[in-house]
Design a protein around this nucleic acid. Structure first.
Length: 469
RNA sequence: CGGGAAGUAGCGCAGCUUGGUUAGCGCGCCUGGUUUGGGACCAGGAGGUCGCGGGUUCAAAUCCCGCCUUCCCGACCA
């Protein structure tokens, strides 16, 4: 029978479904100020998992965490012409503080290239100070015209890495390393999203960058979501902020800098890449709660076994929780389905009489009886199976919704339902403008084998185009 | 910011056209009881300056004006 407060089916109204999931899974609420977001504990616990996976890899890549101020002098932004042009429409500016008008307005950071550049200039003197590899976890503010929880909020949480290098080659290699070893790895192996990796067209590049690398995820409605970016900034910011070092041979030179970021938008990507009619689906490696043990009836011996299984699973390294004495069995099951918990261990008197429990997986809702003694082993193997299966399924959907075409008209048609792939030479700057007029954008450029090119000018590149969030 | 829709209890809505006493309904919430193998049931209860401001009127959720907010589509973006 149809529950009265069911989610809107995604096939019927995908944006509505997205909002329903965000609300029902207790991920986030709208804040009181337009476009702001309250991240609720469950949503935040997913963010903490993402943070941890990213942070571990960022540190493995040699970068160190630091923190720079929220407030940036307005004049800093103006020092890099393209940068200020790109960001000024969405800046929040403080003009009044401490009871009086400020002599110089203060910008609430939309990103920190400028303020970090200023300090890099102070800290870097010699080639021995390079590379300087910094990262910060912070909130940033961009006054977006059309906010949407997680996908585009006026304030969002992210990490932003900023590095300075002696040579263009070193900077390019580092940006690429972050792109692949941090972002793609977390997105693919933890979030189970088979993102397309590539570089942005010059038109889509970050304001002030000479090259932008991107991970483009495909959502279940066929639209693209930029899930991370990694920029080569050339010497643009080094010149604007005098980030200069003296080389081993003697002469001074401007550094080559990079910046790279991933944000709470990833949570929106998670929802839209894996979610289904029943709600969120969280891949096991990402899940804050990997398994929930549910006593079918609130009877002492049943709850006791359930508690014992929780302890055993926790001891086996599974992130597990017990859900007892809280309403009907059906209610509890559906609540955890909406939250996307990968595995449910259902403990009932009938099963227990036969020395077993029922284990259900969230991704395909298959159920199987498992002997009590085998529970933790089976849960752990199931978590691995689900992780792999989610990635495989998402890859299958991605490939099915990616169409190879030969001209712009066919690309526009294919972009109605997914991605189109065509030679970059066929698109060009004029073709890109034509696509943009129909709300279709060049998501990324790839080599024919799918790897990430060094420059849009490489021969034989292919363009992936799509509608995007 | 342009086009469209909507603001009435925590959420979703009805009531408005044709102004009129204590503004209803479903879900949720509280209390008690019975329940619990897929979104439980019964009984009792709490909860609303009808988005904000102004106007018309004996009387405004209802009519008029202005503003704000939210959602959808577009341009911008992580």
């Amino acid at each position: 029978m149809a529950p009265s407060n069911a989610l809107t089916p995604p096939s019927e109204d995908f944006p509505r479904w997205y909002q329903d999931v965000v609300a029902s899974a207790e991920m986030a609420d709208n804040g009181p100020v337009r476009g702001t977001m309250v991240i609720r504990p469950y949503g935040y616990s997913i963010w903490e998992r993402i943070q941890r996976e990213l942070d571990d890899r960022i540190k493995a890549a040699g970068a160190q965490n630091a923190y720079f101020p929220l407030f940036i002098p307005e004049s800093y932004l103006a020092r890099e012409a393209e940068h200020v042009e790109g960001f000024s429409p969405e800046l929040a500016v403080v003009t009044h503080a401490g009871g009086e008008d400020l002599a110089e307005p203060v910008v609430v950071r939309p990103t920190s290239e400028t303020v970090i550049g200023e300090f890099m200039a102070k800290w870097i003197q010699s080639y021995r100070d390079l590379p300087l590899l910094l990262n910060q976890w912070a909130n940033v503010v961009r006054w977006e015209l059309r906010p949407r929880l997680f996908l585009r909020s006026s304030e969002f949480l992210w990490q932003e890495g900023h590095t300075a290098h002696a040579t263009a080659a070193d900077a390019a290699a580092y940006a690429r390393r972050i792109h692949l070893e941090v972002y793609y790895d977390v997105i693919a192996s933890i979030m189970a999203v088979p993102a397309y990796v590539g570089i942005k067209s010059p038109r889509e590049r970050f304001a002030g960058a000479i090259n932008t690398l991107t991970c483009e995820g495909m959502m279940r409605d066929g639209k693209a979501l930029q899930m991370s970016t990694s920029h080569e900034l050339g010497q643009n910011f080094a010149r604007a902020f005098d980030i200069v070092f003296q080389s081993e041979a003697g002469p001074s030179a401007h550094c080559h800098t990079t910046s790279w970021g991933a944000s709470t938008r990833l949570i929106g990507g998670l929802i839209m890449a894996h979610g289904d009619d029943r709600g969120l689906v969280v891949p096991p490696r990402l899940a804050p709660i990997q398994a929930v043990v549910i006593p079918v009836r609130d009877e002492p011996d049943v709850v006791e076994v359930a508690q014992r299984l929780v302890d055993e699973l926790r001891g086996a390294g599974v992130r597990v929780t017990l859900d007892a004495a809280r309403g009907s069995f059906g209610r509890r099951v559906t609540d955890w389905e909406i939250k996307g918990v990968p595995v449910r261990v259902e403990v009932g008197p009938r099963d227990l009489a036969e020395g077993r429990v029922t284990i259900a997986r969230r991704d395909d809702e298959a159920k199987e009886p498992v002997a009590l003694a085998a529970v933790s082993g089976r849960v752990r193997s199931l978590l691995e199976e689900i992780q792999a299966s989610l990635f495989d399924e998402a890859t299958r959907r991605r490939d099915a919704a990616t169409t190879d075409v030969v001209d712009l008209d066919a690309a526009l048609e294919a972009a109605e339902t997914g991605f189109a792939r065509l030679p970059w030479a066929v698109v060009g700057a004029e073709g890109e403008a034509r696509l943009n007029a129909k709300a279709v954008t060049v998501r990324c450029l790839q080599r024919p084998d799918g790897t990430t090119p060094d420059s849009p000018d490489e021969p034989d590149l292919v363009a992936l185009v799509a509608r995007a969030y």
